[in-house]
């Protein structure tokens, strides 16, 4: 009869049949098998089962014609550089296109119409000295353009306060 100690060796018995025991495990198991006929019987059964499985017939293996194989692909470590290189090229092309659109037209190419960022009147008033007459003229502009004129004058460290006062009086009117 196998006892409780034998239970500890049951897995080792099967692993021994597979040849998967470490040297220490094999030694421990062999020592146990010497003194335990029940476990020896189990070990024999495991070996028999393994032998039967190994003896199962198999169809003949196919012939592998290595000569018909194509030449092995050489290592191409540089091929991985193609992806970042392609990305860099694409970025460059996009930048060139972008700059090309905003640049003045060149000879031989139809001029690309560019919308003026601000009207002629706004530019003239922004560059004019910030006198009351200028502000009066600016009052005729739409409010957004008037803001631009006032900001332009502010940037020039000009009299901004009178302009704001005028704007306030204009809005209350």
């Amino acid at each position: 009869m196998m006892n409780k100690t034998c239970d500890n060796f049951e897995e080792l018995i099967d692993l021994k049949a597979a040849g998967w025991l470490s040297p220490e495990e094999a030694t421990a198991l062999d020592q146990h098998l010497e003194s335990c006929p029940a476990c020896r019987a189990q070990a024999d059964l495991a070996e028999s089962a393994a032998g039967v499985l190994a003896a199962l017939p198999a169809p003949a293996a196919p012939v592998i014609d290595v000569a018909s194989f194509p030449s092995p692909t050489p290592t191409k470590p540089w091929k991985w550089l193609l992806i970042p290189a392609a990305a860099a090229c694409l970025t460059l092309v996009l930048w060139v296109r972008l700059l090309d659109v905003s640049a003045p037209s060149v000879v031989g190419r139809d001029p690309v119409p560019v919308a003026p960022r601000e009207s002629h009147a706004v530019r003239a008033l922004s560059e004019a000295p910030p006198t009351l007459a200028t502000y009066h003229q600016a009052l005729s502009l739409p409010l957004d353009d008037l803001d631009r004129v006032l900001e332009a004058h502010d940037r020039q460290i000009m009299l901004y306060e009178p302009g704001l006062t005028l704007l306030a009086s204009h809005q209350t009117l």
Partner: peptide
């Protein structure tokens, strides 16, 4: 998996009271 599979095969062999090749061992 090997252990559990092989244990079942051992038990099946025991059911028919198969003798191991050495023939000297007693079965459970």
């Amino acid at each position: 998996r090997l252990h559990h599979g092989l244990r079942k095969l051992r038990k099946s062999s025991q059911c028919l009271n198969l003798r191991a090749p050495r023939g000297e061992s007693e079965t459970r």
